[in-house]
């Protein structure tokens, strides 16, 4: 597969490490969240046949974490964003 890196352009997926569902961005605060909520965050995943937002790490590249939107049926990749930008836009900060 080829991932069209938002800064570096098309790069072979071999250079990346896959993590999983981009919902991992929404980590609850361990001091305030219930164990149940944290459990769901840690373990529960949708498994869509179709578009899936997922985290990829450009380990053999610029070390950027990316949010890749990929069709799990066709492998078509429709969007690639820097995870840091996505995380900020979705409310993550410090």
């Amino acid at each position: 597969m080829i991932i069209n890196h938002p800064i570096l352009g098309p790069r072979d997926a071999q250079e990346f490490v896959y993590l999983g569902d981009a919902s991992l961005i929404h980590r609850p605060d361990g001091l305030t969240a219930s164990i149940e909520a944290f459990h769901d965050y840690t373990y529960l995943r949708a498994n869509p046949a179709g578009l899936h937002r997922e985290l990829w790490y450009h380990e053999q590249g610029d070390r950027s974490w990316l949010v890749v939107t990929r069709n799990t049926v066709t492998h078509e990749i429709t969007s690639v964003e820097l995870a840091r930008d996505v995380a900020r836009s979705e409310g993550r900060s410090k």
Binding site: L8, Q14, E15, E59, Q60, G61, D62
Partner: peptide, 9 residues
Amino acid sequence: TRTVLEHLG
């Protein structure tokens, strides 16, 4: 660029 040669970054 960073790239892989012989398994090495």
